[in-house]
Design a protein around this nucleic acid. Structure first.
Lengths: 234, 234
DNA sequence: CGCTGCGTTGAGACTACTCAATATCCGTGG
DNA sequence: CCACGGATATTGAGTAGTCTCAACGCAGCG
């Protein structure tokens, strides 16, 4: 089991503790809710395989995805201290998910201070990503936002060794991407076409290739520091 | 010292531990950076008095505020597990700020598991607020977003007993509000005028009064659950 | 072979932006 | 007490970016 790119900070013993906290591993199909808003919650979910997302909706059906999760991510660890779910979690592809009861997480906070800080950190990386999304939603154009998202996903996938050079599997539909970027599907389509036409990106089937990383990063004003993926300095 | 509306979950002993973690209390003027992006960080800041915000900027000066902080909020507690600042913190009014060295927070995580979870929770409430902002930025109109913000601030101020009926001090300029909502100052002005004209809100000087809470809540589709302000059920 | 879901295209509308001018408020100094 | 400067708020007019609605294409699949 991997804890997102933070493996290097966990000792073998801590890794074992974490592994033991898993009660069960469950398979989900694509496009299924794992947790629904306001669900009672006494367990968290660690994504072992596949992509998932967290989203909020408005009464009339407008939906905003507020997080994308890749293998290794704890998708709803925050529900442990939070004790509520204020949003839903859904799979985007078939997924394998490890279930961690909150009771066991509580035990960890009582015996493993360093591991606790790493778990805490994991929820904070989600928050840092969301801050960038918020900056994008408020202050970047749709193209800049899309470019930034592809940069983010590329870097995150690279740390879990799920890229092949500049190519990677990208399983979202344009509709799901639209809900992520906060624009309409129609506009998403036009934005993507723009990126393709300017030859910074290709996207066919479920494979994205970054053709011009420099230019893509420049148009997104992308700086990966916020992902906190370099080893902790202590 | 208050930890945001979560006091009821802290024992007297825990409160004392937290109080002892404070190394210093510092005064800041309005409109001053407390922490700047990429600053080395070995301490966090607890807001005792005044309002502060966290923000991100783009190279050309576009700015997005990603959090508003009221008295009792830990403005950059996340910098403790995170060990980086990926954004800046600034005062919006004159502020009194308690400085908590990370060394002491580390000690807390080693000896006070419950207090640690409450601190963790505090960072997660920020994240929950940000998710609502993200939903707003992506899927709500500017008016809905503004309405939602006023609802949020009202509820948060009420829990720290800083409201007078439906009136409360609101020290932001329209420019700062614009950077919060992710729209231009000009449009912010028109949005506010709309809210005033429809008589759901008044805002004169630095005082806001919610004239029609029902209607404001309905147009914002506001549900305060996400603020996790009711006592924890355990 | 005809759904059904996804992607693409076009045309027109609307929200929010830009630029620019003017108004108001408030603190400061004469 | 008034004049002034600077920051903030307001207004207007034209524009850009994004949305809406609607149609059409294409592919996978029962």
């Amino acid at each position: 089991m991997k804890m997102r790119a933070r493996d290097q900070t966990l000792s073998a013993e801590e890794n074992a503790v974490l592994r033991e906290a898993v009660a069960d591993v469950v398979q989900f199909e694509a496009d299924r809710d794992i947790v629904r808003e306001h669900d009672r919650c006494d367990q968290s979910h660690l994504l072992m395989h596949g992509w998932a997302c967290r989203y909020l909706t408005l009464a009339d059906g407008r939906r905003q995805i507020v997080a994308l999760h890749l293998p290794g991510d704890f998708v709803d660890l925050h529900s442990f201290p939070f004790k509520r779910m204020d949003h839903s979690v859904a799979t985007l592809t078939p997924c394998a998910i490890a279930v961690v009861p909150h009771e066991r997480l509580k035990r960890i906070t009582e015996t493993q201070p360093h591991l606790t800080r790493v778990l805490w950190l994991s929820t904070l990386i989600d928050a840092a990503i969301l801050r960038q999304w918020m900056l994008g939603a408020g202050r970047r154009s749709a193209v800049e936002r899309a470019a930034h998202l592809f940069c983010e996903i590329f870097v995150r996938l690279r740390t879990i060794e799920a890229v092949d050079g500049a190519r990677f599997a990208f399983p979202l539909t344009q509709l799901e991407l639209a809900d992520t970027l906060g624009v309409t599907p129609v506009h998403t389509n036009r934005v993507i076409q723009g990126l393709k036409r300017s030859e910074v990106l290709s996207w066919r089937g479920q494979v994205v290739e970054i053709l011009d990383p420099q230019r893509l990063g420049r148009m997104a004003e992308f700086d990966p520091t916020y992902l906190a993926l370099e080893p902790e300095r202590r």
